[in-house]
């Protein structure tokens, strides 16, 4: 490899200020003496400044709102879920309270309903825990089916 070939391979790193001090000095010295490498370097400089000063393509308003719409959609979906779950929890809570404090309902009816509700929670909870455990340990969960 000739001196010029060796230096030429370093010209981009030199242009970008990404060379070690030692390599930078070698290129400096060579460029002082070699018109052909100096010309190559100047051409690379023109390419870099030309690319850097090209006007950036800009999205239309429609494209911009489509791209940023991702955030809005996902946020509103999250808020929607939160409101739905919160609202449902509030309604259920109020219903339970009304049911428990309603003196016109027989105590045994209340106990029976309570037992069914607790049983449903226990069964549902155990299934949920099992599913979550399976999901954590499933080695194929990321495989598309």
């Amino acid at each position: 490899m000739s001196a010029c070939e060796h230096i030429e391979a370093l010209l981009s790193g030199y242009l970008d200020g990404e060379l070690t001090q030692q390599d930078r000095q070698r290129v400096d010295v060579h460029l002082d003496d070699c018109a052909s490498c100096r010309q190559a370097f100047e051409q690379l400089q023109r390419i870099q400044s030309g690319l850097g000063s090209m006007p950036h393509p800009e999205p239309t308003e429609q494209q911009r709102s489509r791209m940023m719409g991702v955030m809005l959609t996902k946020t509103s979906r999250g808020v929607g879920w939160l409101l739905a779950i919160g609202g449902a929890a509030l309604l259920i809570g109020m219903g339970v309270y009304e049911f428990v404090t309603d003196e016109s309902i027989n105590l045994w009816v209340k106990i029976g309903n309570g037992a069914v509700a607790v049983a449903a929670l226990l069964i549902g909870g155990s299934v949920l825990v099992e599913r979550l455990r399976d999901r954590k340990t499933d080695r194929y969960k990321d495989v598309e089916r």
Binding site: H56, P57, E58, P59, T60, Q63, R64, R66, M67, M68, G69, V70, M71, K74
Partner: peptide
């Protein structure tokens, strides 16, 4: 979005495709 759109337009050569790619990227980031 701003920087990604410039990159995607240069890579894909088409503003609509670029907006789609950036949308996917932003979705992953979010």
């Amino acid at each position: 979005q701003r920087q990604g759109f410039v990159f995607a337009v240069y890579m894909l050569g088409n503003a609509d495709d670029a907006a789609d790619a950036v949308q996917d990227g932003l979705s992953a980031a979010w």
